[in-house]
Amino acid sequence: MHYGKKIRNSQRMALLAGTAALSLLLAACGNQGNSGKNTPVERSTAPPAVVDPATAGSVFGVVRLDGPAPPARKIIMSGDSACTAANQEPPTSQEVVTDAQGNLANVVIYVKGGIGNFSFAIPKAPVEMNQQGCMYVPHVAAVMAGQTVVFHNADKTTHNIHPQPKNNPAWNRSQSPGAPAIEESFSREEIAIPVMCNVHPWMRSYLAVFNHPYFAVSGAGGAFEIRNLSPGNYTLEAWHEKYGTLSQPLIVSAKQAVRVSFVFQAAAGTGR
């Protein structure tokens, strides 16, 4: 009898301990969504890069899609009347955006190799990411590690901003209509982080994070430019969310503006 009581007491203690552990775990997780802030950029021991403006060159060009772009699919926003009201016509998917000549927008072009082991100053100006008409604007953006990204909500509905990184801490924060802007940063290089809104599952953007400033995102005409490159041999890469990556060698001579082009094959698209 006494032994049985002892067993019951120990079971009770185990239950209490388990409950307390779970409570602590929950408390540690917080209850207001979780932020990726307080993840300072990893300090580099590399010497700061010095670029001589007298010799610095640049690279510019156009990204094209060879072959017909897939038809732009209309987005069904019927789950939220504020989203349908914010758009006169249903918006289309931003996955593949080309102009009449097949020039491809939303491609991240960046120097992948040849920069050497240098550290670079983080730009003080933030990169702005808006939620407008229940779409992320811009669809693709690029930042330096540690650079601030400011998220705005211009819509009359609630969004949640949910990046899904593989190399950075994940976070998920809600933003009601009229709520203050949310400022976050990413501490490690990653190409590219999908940013979702789970309230509106069609909302998806990409943020590319670099340890250096030599990157650009192609605009509506597929054009891009990367400036202030020291003369040298590099590898230039282009990343697209559907078509993957393309690489090519790049030689920059003193004061030279090098023209390059990237051509993605439409048939190579595999979807996400």
């Binding site: 509905t157 609630t158 949910h162 789970n198 309230v199 599952p201």
Partner: peptide, 23 residues
Amino acid sequence: DAALAVPDWPLSYGTLTPPMVGG
């Protein structure tokens, strides 16, 4: 894809009656 449409817990957006839209 709505599992994280509400980022907080146990309340939803700090209330029992969040806006019932989308996810």
